[in-house]
Design a protein around this nucleic acid. Structure first.
Lengths: 345, 345
DNA sequence: TTGAAAGCGCTAACAT
DNA sequence: ATGTTAGCGCTTTCAA
């Protein structure tokens, strides 16, 4: 058997409860005994058993991570490692551990969440994605279990603590950047409409056009799981129109890479023939050809604030609901230019 | 307080131990009582407390994940999400949960591992990287704690269960592919020599050249943390040589993207002027311009086998040490061609 | 400031 | 096939 608190107590000549207090660094224990106990711990190579602590204290110092379905290509997106870094950092600062769930389908994911919540494995949960009609959220709400959403809630926005970018604004900025360069024919390429982020970015795109007095064209808007087959087709279609766009806003760097590719196959040059503004600004953006002008959404910070605030909620149950908006910033690279005037009529 | 096993026992009119057996799906309980108990559970909304189970049974049904330092750019590599998917799948099949550690430095990582091992939070550990002189490994070995390494151990190779590709062979194949196309001047671009995988791939490269009777040139070999600044320089250097290579083997798709980029800036065309074979075959490889010929190393399978075998070890302490070699396969795309004979002398 | 003792919710002998 | 009971290792009143 392992070394227990009792062994330490015996060696240090104190009661088990005293040892427990030393572990918790209780203020009402004399410096003297503290040292005595610590010495005993050292001597025995004692290490507290977390399961026992968890059971007795009814808390785990662990936060649960809910990832999107691993079947989505989006899972491969560098967004996740980065947001994870941020979460991990925030958790580490407060000495919290991380428990992960993944699953191949919504059903598997929900089951995994139920397991970890009911099984009392975690004190709170971070949701790494926000999609329409999410059962995980309703489950968590019903049980009044602490959680933070990364992204924008589909509903109950006032009641769910979330950390997000101002995606409407961010995409509006991106679109206006193209407009200000002189573009009038601007296309939108986004991901699944199931995701809140796609909806917001589409919204921002539309606003920018409307405010600039440019008509929206349905044919200019694509959303796709994209990547591989589907999206490529869509790009081809859009470029075949009588007046193809001279600028494109793309909701993700990864997608933009695919777009770049398709464009290249079509013999369309970026930025000479068409300008592209992308989103997320992951490493990929600067490695693309040409390097992509991309909106940096501060992914690390999204994660960091999520875990930090979740822990606050866990430790203080009457913490108010919060909405945290992380700043964004357009990073100019080489994928944009003024529209080719020869082609304008 | 939550619903406990006792409440269920009372309602179902059985002993707590019977309920416990139903949870564990013990074979020596009558179908009748099983149903009776299950009904009671349902009625009360009972859910077993994992902490209590863990404590009583001295096991956690959880495996720990050790990631490389989050400061490495490599952390952003799509390799990790994919291997995670595999691990997750293997764990899920056996009903194991996942506990994560991350850290910004080797020191932080080691501490996190000690926390989770000594704290009895996990039954076994998967190491997602293999580097030279790893303290985590020595720690785990000392304590005789079950773990599986993804990659090749730096030492004690016969004593450490690991799952790996035959990287020597894989890189040899890749290099021979170029040789067979007619290339004689072949450069190697790899990552940090701290990582075992880099060493193996370099080795395979060298072997292929030697067997083909081609002299090794030191100037043709680059290893770099790469990505961003450093690597770009190195590629420039290599292409400035009096006889620059006509072919390049690159140890990772992500790196290859950077190489492609630099080459483009130099006005060197792929594959007309230079051929490239890359590694890992992540989504990126097919989205690059041109799509990269890449060695598929079956990343998902690496993860899957790792968790599956770890669980076997955990559940059966006298399981022998194993070395699992996952197959690889060269995927031909458009980044290679015969060398441009005009330039050959 | 410290100790004694009653749990936390479950498992696993040992009995029956 | 099922019940009894003694822990698992810790925290936390309550008392001193």
């Amino acid at each position: 058997m392992a070394v227990t608190i009792k062994d330490v107590a015996r060696i240090a000549n104190v009661a088990p409860s005293t040892v427990s207090r030393v572990i918790a660094d209780s203020p009402r224990i004399s410096e003297e005994t503290k040292q005595k106990v610590k010495k005993a711990m050292e001597k025995l190579g004692y290490h507290p058993n977390q399961n026992a602590r968890n059971l007795a204290s009814q808390s785990t110092q662990t936060i649960g991570l809910v990832m999107p379905s691993s079947k989505d290509v989006g899972f491969q997106n560098p967004f996740f490692p980065t947001v994870l870094q941020g979460i991990s950092e925030g958790a580490h600062e407060k000495n919290y551990a991380l428990h992960m769930t993944t699953g191949k389908s919504k059903k598997e994911i929900l089951e995994a969440v139920i397991q970890m919540v009911q099984g009392k494995r975690v004190d709170g949960v971070v949701l790494l994605y926000s999609s329409v009609e999410d059962k995980v959220i309703s489950y968590l709400q019903e049980r009044d279990f602490p959680f933070v959403l990364i992204g924008k809630p589909y509903k109950d926005i006032e009641e769910i603590t979330h950390v997000d970018n101002d995606n409407i604004r961010a995409m509006k900025d991106a679109t206006e950047y193209l407009i200000q360069l002189g573009h009038r024919q601007i296309g939108f390429i986004g991901g699944s409409m199931e995701l809140m982020v796609t909806a917001d970015r589409l919204h921002g795109y539309e606003r920018a056009l409307i405010e600039a007095g440019i008509d929206l064209k349905k044919e200019y808007i694509i959303h796709q799981e994209f990547l591989r087959e589907g999206g490529q087709e869509a790009v081809r279609e859009i470029m075949k129109l009588r007046t193809p766009p001279t600028g494109l806003v793309v909701a993700d760097d990864f997608m933009a890479l695919g777009v770049l590719n398709t464009l290249d196959e079509l013999g369309i040059r970026v930025p000479e023939d068409i300008s592209i503004v992308s989103f997320n600004n992951v490493l990929l953006a600067e490695m693309a050809k040409p390097p992509l002008t991309s909106v940096d959404i501060n992914i690390f910070e999204l994660g960091y604030q999520a875990s930090k605030n979740l822990i606050t909620m866990v430790e203080n149950s009457n913490e108010p609901t919060k909405r945290l908006i992380i700043s964004h910033r357009l990073i100019e690279r080489l994928s944009c230019s003024r529209p080719n005037t020869e082609k304008l009529e």
